[in-house]
């Protein structure tokens, strides 16, 4: 039963993603994607897509004209970089100094994951040493009357949360 369900499930997922083969993006879709990758030169932190000032509007138009003239996205980006410098790109390029902005996060995450793994493994190892102590504690005869008192208190239902 579960196996059937699992296989149907996997099949459905595969079918879903197969059906998702993206159609070729239209010119406008490509342009809108580019709007989000270029920063408006006069409004810090906002992309062309976000900005409503005149220069951003002009730049958006320029992108559409150039795409229509069959320029590649990289060429258009390069055009803006030549005019305004690398800072016009919303994402730093993966080269030179700014390679670090891309490399560091995965490196730190991997290191963190490894640290997490080893710490948990270490904490588990300690468990084996401790197992013996708990076993000794459980056979402590002086605890017995209190255990009964606890059971009594539990049975009374007074300490229930309702």
């Amino acid at each position: 039963m579960r196996l059937i369900l699992l296989s149907v499930l996997t099949g459905l997922l595969a079918a879903a993603f197969a059906a998702c083969a993206k159609p070729e993006p239209t010119l406008e879709q490509r342009a809108q994607r580019m709007d989000k990758q270029i920063i408006c030169p006069v409004c810090p932190g906002e992309t062309l897509d976000q900005s409503s000032v005149q220069i951003a509007k002009d730049m958006r138009e320029l992108i559409r004209e150039r795409l229509a003239a069959e320029q590649s996205e990289d060429e258009i980006k390069q055009y803006f970089v030549d005019r305004y410098g690398t800072r016009i790109l919303a994402e730093p390029p993966a080269s030179g100094v700014s390679l670090a902005v891309w490399i560091i996060p995965p490196v730190v995450m991997l290191a963190g994951a490894a640290a997490l793994y080893f710490v948990v493994r270490e904490m588990r190892r300690r468990r084996q040493d401790q197992g013996i102590e708990t076993a000794q504690a459980s056979s402590d005869p002086t605890l017995k009357p209190y255990l009964e008192a606890v059971d009594e208190e539990l049975r009374s239902g007074r300490t229930g949360s309702g």
Partner: peptide, 13 residues
């Protein structure tokens, strides 16, 4: 948990 409760009770007593 029950043992822990009993242990606390014993300490208290």
């Amino acid at each position: 948990l029950r043992r822990e409760a009993a242990r606390l009770m014993m300490e208290e007593a």
